[in-house]
């Protein structure tokens, strides 16, 4: 079974590694990719990392992006514009939003359904 993928974007790789760990405790089959830090793993975000994470998280059902602050959103928006897959950027708290989306995706919901649920919740 294919699932909607999730990409976690943060200025710090430790933040997204931690969130992924948190989600993996409960949801094991949904693809979760992280894009934390810059190319040199400094604090910041990288459009290339985000683009790669989107590709890796896509199983054909689309991908939802979650971000932390500032440039993360701008870089995510650029990645969405450049992406060839079905991608949506979600304006939600990073931890709670990603957790909820992973649960929804695990139930087999579509990108549109999860996105709508996110909008209602946050």
């Amino acid at each position: 079974m294919n699932f909607v993928g999730i990409v976690l974007i943060s200025h710090s790789s430790k933040i997204v590694e931690g969130i992924k760990e948190l989600i993996r405790q409960v949801i094991t089959d949904v693809p979760i990719e992280i894009a934390g830090g810059t190319e040199n793993n400094e604090i910041g975000t990288s459009i290339d990392k985000i683009a790669k994470a989107i590709q890796d998280a896509d199983q054909g059902k689309g991908v939802l992006l979650f971000y932390d602050i500032g440039s993360a959103k701008m870089n995510a928006e650029m990645a969405v514009e450049l992406a060839e897959t079905d991608v949506k950027l979600v304006d939600a708290p990073l931890v709670e939003g990603a957790y909820m989306a992973a649960v929804e995706s695990g139930m087999g919901k579509s990108l549109g359904e999860i996105y709508k649920a996110m909008k209602e919740e946050f």
């Binding site: 400094e42 459009i47 500032g70 701008m74 870089n75 650029m78």
Partner: peptide, 15 residues
């Protein structure tokens, strides 16, 4: 600019 600048200035100057 887009791929080498880590902060907000990357996407902004890149755009």
């Amino acid at each position: 600019m887009m791929s080498k600048v880590g902060g907000a200035s990357g996407p902004l100057y890149g755009t």
